[in-house]
Simulated assay, not measured.
Amino acid sequence: MLASALLTPAALAHPHSFISLVTTVMADKGQMTGLKMVWTMDEITSADLLYDAGDAKPDSPVWKKLAAEVMANVLGQHYFTEFWHNGEKVKFNNLPTEYSLKNVDHQAVLTFVLPLAHPQPLKGQTYTFSTFDPTYFVDMSYDKPTDARLSDELTSGCKIAVKTPRPTQDMQAFALSLDKADAPPEDMELGKQFAQQVIIQCQ
């Protein structure tokens, strides 16, 4: 199941699982409140998870149980997300305000709202965030820049962009050299070296 890939301390370093990200920055009353995330897992990663769901209908308790299990593991890794403002980390609430798991064209899709612990001011501010697996066992990325979006309330006063890193050839070679018996040093945060950065700038 997904927990064996995304959601446990992995002994595998270079990507063996892939998740496509779509993120919408949420706001209310002129302040940023959180991120709505949609994670679409690759078909191989999805296979075991969908097998466990069987032919369960979308409103079946089976899906709610699986969603809760996957979400618990995501929470155990702080949503696999780092959020920064003026060089300091922005804290999240410990629980999502909503979440669900479903089957879309034979792929498992996890949708949830990551709430900020405190609403953040927007006017004249710049924020950055990245979503990644530190071990780089799971590749988590945006298929296209427009998959990082602003909610309607933010489109008039803010801009959003996705910056894709360019790891050195040595770093790429190191990641590819790691096999199933290897793991990168924890303090290396290998996945962070490959993580896309989303930048939000508001007037």
Rank of each mutant, 00 (worst) to 15 (best):
N93R: 14
Q169F: 07
N94R: 13
L116D: 08
Q107K: 15
P145M: 01
A117P: 02
T111A: 11
D133K: 06
G191N: 08
H118S: 14
V90I: 15
S177K: 09
T128F: 04
L75W: 13
M171N: 02
V162Q: 05
F174Q: 02
K91L: 15
L66G: 08
F132P: 02
L110C: 11
D143Y: 00
N103E: 15
E82Y: 11
D179Y: 04
R149D: 02
G157V: 01
Y127H: 03
Y127R: 01
T111W: 10
T164H: 05
T146G: 00
K65S: 13
L66M: 14
L114H: 06
L116S: 07
K89D: 10
L122N: 06
E153A: 11
D152E: 10
E186A: 09
E98Q: 15
A117F: 06
S100H: 13
T128Q: 09
E69G: 09
L154H: 01
S141D: 05
Y79C: 10
P165V: 07
Y127G: 01
L150T: 01
L75A: 15
W63M: 14
A67W: 13
F92Q: 12
F83N: 09
P115T: 10
G124V: 07
M140H: 02
A67I: 13
T146L: 01
K123S: 08
K144V: 00
C158R: 01
F92T: 13
L150G: 00
E186Y: 01
T135W: 00
V138F: 00
V104H: 13
A68D: 14
K102Q: 15
F112S: 10
M188S: 06
P121Y: 06
L110E: 11
D139E: 10
Q107T: 14
P119N: 09
G157D: 07
L122V: 09
F83C: 09
H85L: 08
Y142E: 02
A72N: 13
K102C: 10
K180M: 11
L101R: 13
D152I: 03
P96L: 12
M188N: 03
T111Q: 14
K64T: 11
P61V: 12
A161Q: 07
T128A: 04
